[in-house]
């Protein structure tokens, strides 16, 4: 027992910083989030404003100048869209969709998972069987079917992503909550005559959060990859407002003709984003796992 008493957060922060790689990932993530938040400010062009792009500037290579004299540092796509701006705005959509769908799916998962764990019996069996059925289908398949029925749009993509993700959280929450439910502090809370909802959300939930945070961080990366896949397949967002997946898909047709930049740079942006999130998630898992604590 030393004199300096760390708060849990300080402990987590210092453990997290122990890995250089995780710090690098975190720094990359901060940059990516910054770009996504301030895309309209940092982009040279609004790639979704049709009056700002010109088909006469299409398929210019990285560093070439437009007819109006503007330099396209990463080149342009087949509609004359500045790739750099396209990537910035694409990141915005990808991250936005990824984070939002994860938060919503997480909330849904917590609700169902806690309900299942707390009440047990038939309710538990019902919810878990639904999860099992859901998890037995590949996520991409469910998302494809949903989008085919719902149509295009950011909201539709988010709905599809929530549907394919909530079951992971529900399962994780239930598992953790079942362990916690048998512990003394819950007994004590019961003994004090606290209401079910108070015990669930004030006592159980905080204690099952660490594994959830880890699952959620990994799932954000999954959600982003899934959104990109769906856009690549042409489902999801309107073609005049491309996200990263659609940019990659557009450039895919030009790969054989040597115009690599249309696919390459959005692909790189997608890769770096997902790597950054995974580095952070990996370290978080180590830090938050009580069994790995020194």
């Amino acid at each position: 027992m030393t004199a300096a008493v760390q708060t849990p957060f300080q402990r987590i922060a210092s453990d997290f910083a122990a890995s250089k790689l995780a710090l690098l990932g975190f720094a990359m993530l901060v940059v990516v989030i910054g770009i996504a938040l301030f895309a309209p400010v940092v982009s040279p062009q609004n790639p979704y404003d049709l009056t700002q792009i010109d088909v006469m500037d299409s398929k210019l290579g990285p560093g070439e100048k437009s007819m109006a004299g503007q330099t396209y540092w990463l080149g342009t796509d087949d509609q004359g869209r500045d790739m750099l701006s396209g990537i910035f705005y694409g990141l915005r959509i990808s991250l936005g969709v990824g984070v939002l769908s994860t938060i919503l799916a997480l909330s849904l998962g917590i609700l169902f998972g806690l309900t299942a764990a707390w009440f047990g019996g038939r309710i538990d069996a019902l919810i878990m069987r639904i999860c099992d059925i859901q998890l037995s289908f590949p996520a991409i398949l469910i998302a494809l079917i949903l989008l085919a029925m719902l149509g295009q749009g950011v909201d539709k993509i988010i709905i599809a992503l929530i549907t394919v993700q909530w079951a992971y959280y529900a399962r994780t929450v239930r598992g953790a909550a079942l362990v916690e439910r048998g512990k003394e502090y819950v007994e004590a809370a019961r003994g004090l005559g606290l209401s079910s909802s108070r015990i669930l959300f004030r006592h159980l939930l905080p204690n099952v959060l660490p594994p959830l945070i880890v699952v959620a961080t990994v799932q954000v990366a999954h959600a982003i990859a899934l959104e990109a896949t769906l856009s690549f397949l042409g489902l999801g967002l309107p073609i005049t407002e491309p996200s990263l997946g659609l940019l990659i898909s557009n450039g895919f047709q030009y790969l054989m003709s040597g115009k690599y930049w249309i696919s390459f740079y959005p692909g790189l942006a997608l890769l770096l984003t997902i790597v950054a999130i995974n580095l952070v998630a990996d370290q978080l898992r180590d830090v938050l796992n009580p069994r790995l604590q020194k």
Binding site: D49, L50, T51, I53, D54, V55, D78, Q79, G80, Q152, P238, I239, T240
Partner: peptide, 23 residues
Amino acid sequence: DDKVIQALAQFYSRIGIDTKVET
């Protein structure tokens, strides 16, 4: 066809018509 229609959308937004594309 999907590229032609996007180019058309560009041309129309230049003359003040708000244009969306759906294929």
